[in-house]
Each structure stands twice: as structure tokens, then as C-alpha cells.
Simulated assay, not measured.
Amino acid sequence: MGRLSRMDALQHQAMAQETERRRQVELKRIDAALERMKEGEYGLCVHCGESIATRRLEFDPAAPLCITCASAAKSG
């Protein structure tokens, strides 16, 4: 019983740490999008400079890349 409780506690701790890490990543993405807004560059791909599709921004307002550059980053 004790070993299972310890394993369960370790699993919960790992899950909490991963949740916090993802939260921090998302906050950084939002901060970067707000900075692009201040600079008048919101909606432009940070890689190629082309406009990011409105539907993409509606789905993910913090998206820094157009779909072409995002796809290339995932595959390469």
C-alpha cells in the first residue's frame, strides 16, 4: 500500500509540474503577442513577414507563424 501511495504522489507531482510548465509557455506566447501588438506587427508571421490568416488568429490569437511557416517548422 505504501509503495503505491508514493508512486501515486510522484505521478501527481509530475503532472502538476508539467501543467505549470505548459502554463508558463502559454503566458510567454501571450506576452509575445501583446508585444507584437505594441510594435504594430501583430498578425504578421515572425518568420516570413506575411500576414497570418484571420481564421488562424481566431483559433490561436497568440500564433506567431503563418500556416506555411508553422507547417515547415513541424516537418523540419
Rank of each mutant, 00 (worst) to 15 (best):
G2T: 11
G2P: 01
R3F: 11
R3K: 13
S5C: 08
R6N: 08
R6A: 12
M7I: 10
M7H: 07
M7F: 08
D8K: 15
A9P: 00
A9F: 09
A9M: 09
A9L: 14
A9I: 11
L10H: 14
Q11D: 14
Q11Y: 12
H12K: 15
H12L: 14
M15H: 10
M15W: 09
A16K: 11
A16H: 09
Q17D: 09
Q17C: 02
E18T: 04
T19S: 09
T19R: 13
E20L: 11
R21Q: 05
R23T: 09
R23Y: 06
Q24E: 10
Q24K: 11
Q24S: 06
V25L: 14
E26W: 01
L27D: 11
K28T: 11
R29W: 03
I30W: 02
A32D: 15
A32H: 08
A33Q: 06
R36T: 10
R36Y: 04
R36N: 08
R36W: 03
M37E: 14
E39W: 01
E39G: 02
E41I: 00
Y42S: 03
G43K: 03
L44T: 06
L44M: 07
L44C: 02
C45H: 01
H47E: 15
H47Q: 13
C48N: 04
G49T: 01
E50H: 04
E50C: 03
S51V: 06
I52T: 08
A53Q: 10
A53C: 04
T54N: 04
T54Y: 05
L57E: 00
E58A: 06
E58G: 02
F59S: 14
D60E: 13
A62P: 03
A63Q: 07
L65F: 10
L65R: 07
C66W: 00
C66S: 02
C66F: 00
C66L: 02
I67L: 12
I67K: 07
A70G: 05
A72I: 13
A73V: 05
K74S: 05
